[in-house]
Structure formats: structure tokens, C-alpha cells
Design a protein around this nucleic acid. Structure first.
Lengths: 366, 366
DNA sequence: TTGCCAGTTGGAACCGGTTCCAGTATACTG
DNA sequence: CAGTATACTGGAACCGGTTCCAACTGGCAA
């Protein structure tokens, strides 16, 4: 990678010290300029107490003249609230999290709350992020995405009266917004069974990337669907593996190596499903002719590779989570409301079957 | 979309008022507990002045006993810095921006700076975000991604001594991290020409989504490459269109309707290239047999659809931008350094040609 | 012994808002 | 007409840190 560095030629005066911001007008300056007391200025600012119209006008003129803007830091200190909401989210590069964040943004838009993002990449980060949340009351509330809160966090939040909402994760003590993964998995599996498949495998990953015991809730859904169709369950058809395309690729390879390889796979994430597609291609299998695939989440790519998948309302979840938190902030109390969404089956080209007419010519992508 | 709402059954005591956080130990409480003055506690906290080891131990014990953590708001007020960095980024759902953010995160990790994200979806948002930046010194510095700062912003930043760094955008007065789009476009075009194409079209979008006049810097690169190969330039081969797959699709359709349709297209964004692929498929063209395509950015999907593209070092740009800002914050002055990166050609399946051996069987995807 | 310095320490003043109480002017009641 | 509410206003006290100056200590050179 080539990298060039151009020094700017002195078009500008030597920069004066940054870091320490320039002196700004304070509320007292405004008060002096307008010939009123600081209390009056504060009242004009907040609009929460009566001020005579003439006085208000004078104060506003003074503010304009001095280019006055209240200091957030000072407001935060004296109001005891920061107008900031913390979001703790794992690996926020992933499409899923980005969509959730987008939903949160939607909810917070226009409310004056700023969003501080704590991205968590390792389990240690998570603990640090949770610690931060608690210690340095930088935020008035928290949204925790796809991470299981531990007991000590819950207690700290309660002790500090810091409202928090869980998104894609749940705990009885906190409000949450989740998807019914169990049901969604059952629906995906049912779909494959309806298409006539009898050898349906599952490739999946953990739900919470950082807690080893948080097995995916999709597993029971998959098993239930099999049971309901009276198809015997086979241990070797369940592969739990890394949440990466490579994981999916490896998983499918191993399934194909079985004496009786599956004819259909339900994959617990589109990300892994991409790898599954790759492995199918490398094995020379036609999709969906030789192998039907249903993914999970409906990430952006899914549409372009024609992946049939369960759409999870990611943005909606973010938005609802944000709204729940705003309400808790407003009401001054948290109600442990639990919202549960259902995923929706999006049929594209990787599942085939006679139930759906495919547009001609794009039946196969393998 | 189905939505269920369960009220929690009263497993927990009625929540006490949130919003107003519980009383926390202050520095004065710690001082009293440890039998020292507040100055001494502050010194222990900051570690920036000598404190006798025995005293320090007593203070630390007191802090531990009281569960003391300094208030960020109070620190921000008295230190006149917030330890927060603002990022202004358009439509941050896009892979490009997410990658840049990831790079920024990398740079800021472990530095104690928090990241406040201002997502900009409309031009009005941008102005509001810029306004916020200036007014409410919520942040010590700013990173502005893919947005052209206007003059008034530059002046405000300077007046406030608020350091800012531009990423994927530039201005003489501010440090910036950019990609040499002109050169990258020339390289992409050259590649297609080297493969023997003589009818090479360009599909592109604006560089800055919010400023109408910011034509893509790729256009001159494309033209230069043509000129260097002595290929006459044709106005009808340059299509500037929406930054969406649909835009790309529409663009290719119109190019194919020309009396002499191109045999190759350089597309100024992978997102549009996805639509181009779709349009090629719908027209029954083989890619790259009938139409060669080179995209731009190397977004995640590109790999899975086999798109040849110019890889832009998105994460690296974010990281460098973050580092530049940290340095400005450290030094207390901003040097208008301009870093320029080159994009890198990533050859996959959509350009074809005899120069590169394709793995068998995946030559065509149309 | 005195003088001086470095190492420590206490705490008032300050950062820039909000809040609340006391005070003034005006309006309305009986 | 006094009596009391009502509308508005000023500013001290406070939020919880940091900073700086004055003061105290002991060690060491003169």
C-alpha cells in the first residue's frame, strides 16, 4: 500500500494551542450584557419558568450577540444528567449490529440524546464496557445489544438507578426486545420439510459471542420441527461452529463427508451461509437442486446471492429498544417489558421447491 | 410482523425513580474518610503530583471502601475537556463507513476517549451535526467522514480551537486522510484496456452525497486512462447516477440500449456494481464473457459475488484519521497533514481476460 | 544555629450551569 | 381599602471535580 504525505504549505497562520478551547461566553456574560440576573438567563434557556416577554427578548438578543451556547458539561454537572445514552454492542462492524444501531438512531433522533458507542470485541472488553457504564456516569441510560448481563451488572444498574434495555438478549429484571429464535428456526426447518426434504441439517453458532453456555435458541426450534414431522433427530446433523463464512464452509464440508449427507441445511446466520454456498460450489453441488439452504437474519448480502433466509427485524428491534429506554428515562422508572418479534421467511433462490415459481434463468447460482 | 408484549410478573420490587441517579460518594467523602484534604485525593486520582506512599494508600483504601468513582461531568467541567471525540458520518449503515468507524475505534481503543457518533442522513442533518459540534462542546475533537466542511464550520472550529480531521474528504485548512480516487480510477480503467476492451464505460456517483457539485474524482482518472490509450472519449459512456444497486441497474440498461454498447464497465462503487450485475443477468449477458465489470471499494459482498474491484483501505483510513486527531489533541495544535492512500486492484471473476488464470468452473456468474 | 529547598498537604476559588428562596410589582378579592 | 395571590426577578448556594497558593515538614549546607 502506497502512502504519501504532503505537508501543507503555510496557507494558514500557525495554529494556536488547541486542546484548551477558546474562552466562550458564559451565562454570567449574557446576564451582564442583558442587564438581568443569571437566574433569568437560565429560565430563558430552559423555558421552564415564566419570564416577561420583553426580558426574554433582551436575553435572547444578548445570547445572539455573544454567540452564547450553554456548556453541556456544566449542564450535565448541575442537572445530574448527561443527555447521553450508552450502547454496548459486540463487534459493531457486523451488519446485524449496524442495523440495530440504525434503529436506535431512529428512536433517538430529535430527542437531543447523544449516542456513545462501546464496541466490544473480546470478553474482557465487555467487562470493561460494563464497568465503565457503571462507574463513570457518562450516560443516563444504556442499551445492551446481544450481550448477556451478569448479575453484578444488574445489581449495579439498579443501585445507580441507571435504566437499561436489552436488545437481542434477555433477563427477567430488565426490559428487552428479542426475536423468537426458537420459533423462527422451527419455521425455517418446516419450510425445508414442506419442500420434501427428509435429511435436513443445522449449522449454527452461539447466540452470545461471549458466553460459552448461551447455546442458540434456534437449536430447540430445529429439533421441534423435526419432531413434529416425525423425522428422527441425528446428532451428526447439528454442527455448531464459528460465526464466519469459513465456519460455514468447514461445516458443510464435514456434513457432505457423512455417509448420508443432508439434502438441505438450515444455517443459523447468513454470514455462515455464505461459506456454505462457497462449499457447495466447490463440491460441485447445484443449489438448490442438490442442496437447499435457508439462512438467518437477512443481511444485506443475502439479497445479492439469492439466499433464502429468515428476516430478523433488526432495525425495528433497535428502534423499539431505544423507545423503551426513552420511556424509562421519561417516566423515571423502568418497567420490565419484554417485546418479542417473529422473524419472517424470505424466499429467494437457494431453497427451490415447487411451491414457488422462480424467475427463469436464475434458479441456480452454484 | 407479529409482536407480542409480556408484562413482567412482579418478580422485582417496584422500581424506584430512575433518571435521578443514586447519591454517590464524592471526593469530599473520600477526603473525610481518609482524613486528608480534597486536594490530596485529587492528586491521588490524577497521579500528577507527589503524594506520600502512606497517604496514597489511605486514600485508595477510602475510595475502595466507599465505592468511589470520579464524576465525568465534574471532571469535564473543571478540566475543560470531555475526553470524547465526535464522529460525523453519513448513513453509517454502509459498509464503507462502518469499516472506517472500525478503524477509528482501533485508534481510540485504550486511550480513554469515548466516541459520540452523529449519523447524517440528510443535508439538513449534516448542518445540524456541524452546528452541534461547534455549539455544545461535547467533544474535544472531531472526525468528519466523507463530508465536505463548509467555510463557516472551518472558521468555527478554528475559533474554538477544536481540532478536526477529515476522512475521505479534504480541505487545505484541515488534516485529512484520503484515497487517490483519480489514480485508482485510472488504474481500474487501464486494467480493462489491457484486457483488450476498447468500449469501456463509466458508471459513477457523486463523491459527497450531500454536495451537488462534488463530482467524483474518479471521472478525470477514467478519462486520463482513455486518453493515454488513445481511445476517444464518448459522452454517452459516462453515467452519473444514484448510489444504489438500482442506480447501477438502470445505468447498465441504458448503456446496453446504445447503438454501440460497451463491452466493459468501470463502476464507481461496488454497491452500484451489484445492480450492474443484476442488469447483465437480466439481459442474458455472460460476465465477464460479454461484459467485464470492475467495481470500487471492495465492500464485503464483493468477495461473494466475485466482483473485481479497487480495494480502498477503509479501516486503515479510519485508523490513521483517529491517530491524526489524537496527535493534534496531544500536541495541542493541528498540523494540516494530508495522507493519501492508493487503492489496490483486486482481481476476481467479473473482469476475465487472459492475463489471469481463473479457477475452473467459476468463470461465469451471469 | 540559621537559611533554604524539596516534598507534602489543606482548602479556597473556580469551572458554568441549575435551583431555590426571598423580594418586588402588579392584580385580584372581599 | 387592606389582604393575598400571581408574575417576575436577583443571586447565593450547589453540582463534584481541578488548580493554585500558602503553609508545614525535615534534611542539609553554611
Amino acid at each position: 500500500m502506497v502512502l504519501k504525505q504532503d505537508k501543507a504549505e503555510g496557507q494558514q497562520p500557525p495554529a494556536r494551542p488547541a486542546g484548551v478551547p477558546a474562552k466562550r461566553a458564559t451565562i454570567r456574560d449574557v446576564a451582564r450584557e442583558a442587564g438581568v440576573g443569571i437566574g433569568t438567563v437560565s429560565r430563558v434557556l430552559s423555558g421552564r419558568a415564566p419570564v416577561a416577554p420583553a426580558t426574554r427578548a433582551r436575553v435572547e438578543a444578548a445570547m445572539r450577540k455573544l454567540g452564547y451556547h450553554p456548556s453541556r458539561a456544566a449542564q450535565a454537572l448541575s442537572r445530574r444528567r448527561t443527555n447521553t445514552i450508552a450502547v454496548v454492542v459486540p463487534l459493531f462492524t457486523r451488519y446485524f449490529y449496524v442495523e440495530v444501531l440504525r434503529g436506535i438512531e431512529e428512536a433517538l433522533d430529535e430527542t437531543g440524546y447523544a449516542l456513545v458507542i462501546h464496541s466490544v470485541e473480546r470478553a474482557a472488553d465487555r467487562d470493561r464496557a460494563f464497568g465503565d457504564l457503571v462507574e463513570s456516569q457518562r450516560a443516563d441510560g444504556a442499551l445492551i445489544v446481544s450481550l448477556a448481563p451478569d448479575l453484578s451488572l444488574i445489581e449495579s444498574l439498579r443501585a445507580l438507578h441507571l435504566p437499561a434495555v436489552l436488545i437481542d438478549s434477555s433477563h427477567p429484571a430488565l426490559p428487552s426486545v428479542v426475536v423468537d429464535h426458537e420459533r423462527a428456526a422451527a419455521e425455517a426447518t418446516h419450510h425445508l420439510l414442506r419442500l420434501g426434504h427428509r435429511r435436513v441439517a443445522l449449522i449454527d453458532r452461539k447466540d452470545d459471542p461471549f458466553s460459552a453456555e448461551a447455546a442458540s435458541a434456534r437449536i430447540p426450534g430445529y429439533r421441534r420441527a423435526l419432531a413434529e414431522a416425525a423425522i428422527p433427530w441425528r446428532a451428526e446433523y447439528e454442527v455448531i461452529i464459528d460465526f464466519t463464512p469459513e465456519g460455514g464452509q468447514t461445516a458443510l464440508r464435514s456434513l457432505l463427508a457423512l455417509p448420508e449427507p443432508p439434502t438441505a441445511v438450515f444455517v443459523g446466520s447468513d454470514t455462515q451461509a455464505l461459506g456454505v454456498l462457497e462449499a457447495a460450489r466447490e463440491a460441485g453441488l447445484r443449489v438448490p437442486g442438490d442442496l437447499a439452504i435457508v439462512g438467518y437474519n437477512d443481511i444485506e448480502v443475502a439479497r445479492y446471492v439469492g439466499l433464502t433466509t429468515m428476516r430478523v427485524p433488526m432495525r425495528e428491534m433497535g428502534r423499539r429498544g431505544g423507545e423503551l429506554l426513552l420511556r424509562a428515562l421519561d417516566l423515571g422508572e423502568v418497567e420490565a417489558v419484554h417485546l418479542r418479534f417473529d422473524a419472517e421467511l424470505i424466499v429467494r433462490r437457494t431453497c427451490g421447491g415447487s411451491l414457488f415459481r422462480m424467475p427463469t434463468g436464475i434458479d441456480a447460482i452454484g
